[in-house]
Simulated scan of single mutants.
Amino acid sequence: MTSVEAAATAAFQISVQPSGRAFSANAGEAILAAAIRSGVGLPYGCKDGACGSCKCKKLSGIVQHGEHQSKALSADEEAAGFVLTCCAKPLSDVVLESRQVTDESAFPIKKMPVRVASLVQKSPDVMQVRLQLPAADTFRYHAGQYIEFILRDGARRAYSMANAPHTQAEMPGLELHIRHMAGGKFTDHVFGAMKEKEILRVEGPFGSFFLREDSDKPIVLLASGTGFAPIKALIEHMQFKGITRPTRLYWGGRRPNDLYMHDWVLARAADMPHLTYVPVVSNALPEDGWRGRTGFVHQAVLDDCADLSGHQVYACGAPVVVDSARATYCAQRGLPPEEFYADSFTSEADKHGA
């Protein structure tokens, strides 16, 4: 048997430093899939080699990368020992360095049927969808995590829960904010033929985007478009838990109606003295009557914050916003890279782009 043939039939030990957590990965199994299966919480986002959220340093071992985008992992980064755990398959025992190892996967990942409870159009291209869960089931998740719809052909579409877990006690079900992508197989259905009481299949919870409650650092919440959905869940969770860390929410859109729950945020900010809300619009027209901040939302944070070295940043939305924020906040404002938590809303077009 050759060494390659041996690697194809072996199971390998994956260790994560500095936590010391370890798990085993089967032959041909991506490291991230093995971690989720084993209840070890590595950071991740799209699970498809497109967003880079799962990138971490390989301290030792050999991996083989599957298909991925260069913006998620460049050739130089790969040569320097970085890996994308979502598409890296081990060919030996591997030791990784990842400071974001968490226990979020302690909540079981399950598949279940859900029923469309309501459809409310919040803006011309954003639908608030409420899903009713099976009556006898419990669904536990962290505010900020997401579920995946499993479509009839096996394709998947991921959407973050916009309501915090504690809201299940008063109004069982999940709230999602779905943006219409013209020509999108799933969103065309949401904005066209979808009706209340329709049955869908989902799986979750997924993701490592949630509040690190063991810190007392001030927080910057950064959202673009429907990236507000998991941020809304974080805000609800913070209010419920009485978390009063100084928090600034920057929410950006092209036009004012992209800030589709603006009044909701104003009301929360009025109830939460530690929460400051900064709405930002990049392409306001004269007829919009917009008198607030303008420009790019990640730049508004740079304009307001000379030093982020003592902060945590939670960023969610379009990949260009998340990537720009990560690069500039760490390089120009001293933010420790391990204190930047992100969920990049990677569309199917993004995943299959260059």
Rank of each mutant, 00 (worst) to 15 (best):
D137W: 13
F82E: 07
E339F: 11
A325E: 12
A158G: 04
L59V: 12
S74A: 09
D76Q: 14
S347W: 00
K241G: 01
L259W: 10
D307H: 11
R333N: 04
R152P: 13
V4R: 15
I31K: 10
E196N: 15
V63N: 09
A155C: 10
K57E: 06
N257F: 14
L200N: 02
T276H: 14
K89G: 04
L285A: 01
F139L: 13
C56Y: 06
Y260R: 04
L133M: 13
L174C: 11
K89Y: 05
A270D: 11
V220N: 08
L176H: 05
G61Q: 05
G353Y: 03
R268F: 00
A25H: 12
D153W: 05
Y44V: 05
I147F: 14
L32R: 04
V280R: 11
T244C: 08
G310Y: 06
L73R: 08
R99L: 09
H262I: 01
K71D: 14
V40I: 11
F139R: 10
M238T: 09
V120I: 13
A162G: 07
G183M: 13
P108F: 09
R179C: 00
S98H: 00
F82A: 09
W290G: 10
M261Q: 15
L335Q: 14
S123Y: 01
G353C: 09
M1Q: 10
I14F: 05
D307Y: 02
H180W: 12
M181D: 14
R37G: 06
I243T: 14
A33P: 13
D303L: 02
A223D: 09
T226C: 03
T276N: 15
A22Y: 02
Q69W: 05
L259A: 00
T85R: 04
S3G: 03
V278G: 02
A136L: 06
R201Y: 05
L285Q: 10
G227C: 04
M112G: 03
D125N: 15
E29R: 03
K58S: 03
V220R: 07
T328E: 12
S347Y: 07
